[in-house]
């Protein structure tokens, strides 16, 4: 390559060396996946949703494969705030990637307390607030489907940190751009879209649901067109940086999200199948940009041609 392509992006103050982020819940806390891929080359790692206290998660069966996708009802199993700080952050500090911490909670106070506690950790460069987990009884979608709750969470979290705040939106709503607008109005720096879509699947022989929680979150290639439409909707209606998520398997999918309006993107399910996918996507993006004579990847964002 003759000319160096600028892959760096700035998402509402969160500066990344490239737009590839590893999605929450699909990379754990980084240590296992580091056996397969060079995390220092990845734009950002978003850690598994952390809550104030540890959560043991849902009983098995938690996952099932579906056509071009999978349903999961992990139930936000996580080590809790204290162990996250003591046991997980030290490894992530060594990695030399940008760390975004994803927070899940069942009350506004819990979101605030987690953010406040983590704000002092230098390693954490931004927060992603999960208001859209479909698999827990309290919090989760109850917040994610209520515009005023999303507004209040954004406002209260904003009050306790100066670091970039990303609100992770639910696709299980018909008006995602209104949620993005309230995030912007209440001082959020970016939105990420989408979290998983609610889905279910039955065993036809015993008529029981295939996952214990009955419903789960659908992810993988099956949700990509839905996700792209949500990104496009936000991009056309609200002036806020968007992180695109949903079914990205390779660099072509990633480019599609950026064209539709994303400033960066996250890869989730693909990590389970190809834990080196992030690096391969970076290489693919470089060669796409050089073929398309794009000097800076950020030119791609919302470059759609709707004529």
């Amino acid at each position: 390559m003759s000319e160096r392509i600028d892959l760096s992006v700035n998402i509402g103050g969160l500066k990344l060396k490239n737009p590839v982020m590893l999605a929450s819940g699909t990379v754990g806390y980084g240590n296992e996946i580091s056996n397969f891929t060079d995390l220092s080359k990845i734009g950002a790692i978003v850690t598994k949703s952390v809550s104030l206290n540890p959560r043991k998660g849902n009983p098995p069966q938690r996952i099932v494969e579906t056509p071009s996708g999978m349903l999961n009802a992990i139930g936000l199993a996580n080590v809790g705030l204290e162990s996250f700080i003591n046991d997980k952050i030290p490894f992530l500090k060594e990695v030399n990637s940008t760390l975004v911490c994803n927070i899940a909670a069942s009350s506004i106070e819990e979101y605030v307390e987690c953010t406040k506690t983590l704000d002092g950790e230098d390693t954490i460069k931004g927060f992603e607030i999960n208001v859209s987990c479909p698999n827990v009884k309290e919090g989760g979608l109850i917040f994610g489907n209520d515009i005023s709750s999303v507004g209040r969470i954004t406002e209260k979290v904003r009050a306790v940190t100066n670091k970039p705040i990303i609100i992770k939106l639910s696709p299980n709503t018909s008006n995602i751009s209104e949620f993005a607008k309230v995030v912007k109005d209440e001082g959020g720096d970016a939105v990420s879209a989408i979290n998983t879509l609610v889905g279910a699947s039955f065993n036809i022989w015993n008529k029981k649901p295939k996952i214990n929680n009955v419903t789960g979150g659908l992810s993988g290639p099956a949700i990509k067109p839905v996700a792209i439409a949500k990104v496009l909707e936000i991009s056309r209606k609200v002036d806020i940086p968007i992180i695109g998520i949903g079914g990205i398997m390779d660099w072509k999918d990633a480019v599609e999200f950026m064209i539709a309006g994303a400033s960066a993107f996250q890869i989730g399910t693909v990590n389970f199948i190809n834990p080196n996918a992030g690096i391969e996507i970076i290489e693919g993006l470089e060669s796409y940009c050089s073929q398309m004579k794009i000097k800076s990847i950020s030119e791609l964002t919302a470059s759609y041609n709707l004529e």
Binding site: G25, T26, V27, G28, E32, I33, N35, K48, G57, P59, P60, Q61, R62, I63, V64, E65, M70, N72, I74, A77, T269, N271, F272, P275
Partner: peptide
């Protein structure tokens, strides 16, 4: 049932 097989998805408790 497993997705990743190496500890990142929490799918196999």
């Amino acid at each position: 049932a497993m997705a990743c097989g190496f500890g990142i998805c929490q799918g196999c408790p």
